[in-house]
């Protein structure tokens, strides 16, 4: 019964045009970034590594498919939440807006099961979106620019051997899944409060952007708040690109995100159970 509801919800999701906006955007953006990097990536690297050029000569190519994938991850991880929330923000609010809730709730499915089925469908959509992003960026990057060592420029410059990169990228995308599930849970929760999907989508993005800005501003008052903002843990996939990898920190971030998913989902269930369905 539960899986039938999930399938129905998935059918609903994939019947809407907006579901394909995310896939279309990724299909368009990733090749665009990769072509731009292929043409002008050397300049990007030259500028980033200029202080090393004073003492070292570079031997070998750093511009490759792995670097392109890493740059795509850095560039898009702030924007992908928008593509996620475009669908998940509509999960409950969309039904309210179209006036189909009463009809749905006449079926022998409890409200909790309905919420869980909708959330599961949202999670599946999010996972497919991230998986498509991973497959497209890695395969296309490797096909266009080949493989090679990966340079990661942070406060420390990390250079990873070619055979030490792919697992890091796969783990980063896997972490990205959990991060985007959190965004999906947040927008589903906000969706439970609204009667149209614009509100939850806008509010989710406003919260994420505001929290990221707070995290980025290096002021003492924000430093106190920072550990309590879930957005602070969205980018922890970058820890896979350090040596040694701080697994404790990554696990801690995963737990924080899962905790948020739990909170958001519980809040959604509580709100929806008490909700007076008028449409």
């Amino acid at each position: 019964m539960y899986w039938t509801t999930v399938k129905i919800e998935l059918f609903k999701i994939f019947s809407r045009v907006r579901t394909y906006i995310g896939f279309a955007a990724i299909t368009l953006l990733i090749p665009l970034i990769q072509i731009a990097l292929y043409i002008d990536g050397e300049t990007y690297l030259e500028f980033s590594l200029q202080n090393l050029k004073e003492a070292f000569s570079f031997q070998g190519e750093l511009l490759n498919g792995y670097l392109a994938t890493y740059i795509i991850l850095i560039t898009l991880y702030v924007h992908i939440p928008f593509l996620v929330t475009l669908v998940t923000g509509d999960l409950l609010a969309g039904e309210a807006a179209s006036g189909t809730f009463r009809m749905i709730l006449t079926r022998p499915v409890s409200r909790v099961k309905l919420i869980l089925a909708k959330f599961t469908a949202g999670i599946i959509y999010t996972s497919l979106l991230i998986a498509w992003m991973a497959v497209l960026s890695i395969t296309m990057g490797v096909l266009v620019m080949g493989t090679g060592d990966l340079v990661v420029i942070k406060n420390t410059i990390f250079i990873f051997a070619e055979n030490d990169v792919l697992w890091r990228l796969v783990c980063a995308f896997a972490y990205g899944l959990v991060a985007m599930w959190t965004v999906a849970a947040l927008s589903t929760m906000l969706s439970a409060f609204a009667d149209n999907s614009i509100g939850p989508i806008m509010l989710t993005m406003t919260i994420i952007i505001a929290f990221i800005i707070i995290s980025a501003i290096d002021l003492s008052i924000f430093r106190v708040v920072k550990p309590f903002l879930f957005t602070n843990y969205l980018g922890s996939w970058k820890l896979f690109f350090e040596d040694p990898v701080d697994y404790n920190k990554i696990l801690n971030s995963i737990w924080v995100l899962l905790f948020h998913i739990g909170i958001f989902l519980s809040a959604t269930i509580i709100t929806f159970r008490r909700k007076d369905i008028l449409t």
Partner: peptide, 10 residues
């Protein structure tokens, strides 16, 4: 000539 990318002191 090395395998992969290397930094060679000038």
């Amino acid at each position: 000539k090395t395998k992969g990318f290397s930094l060679l002191p000038k």
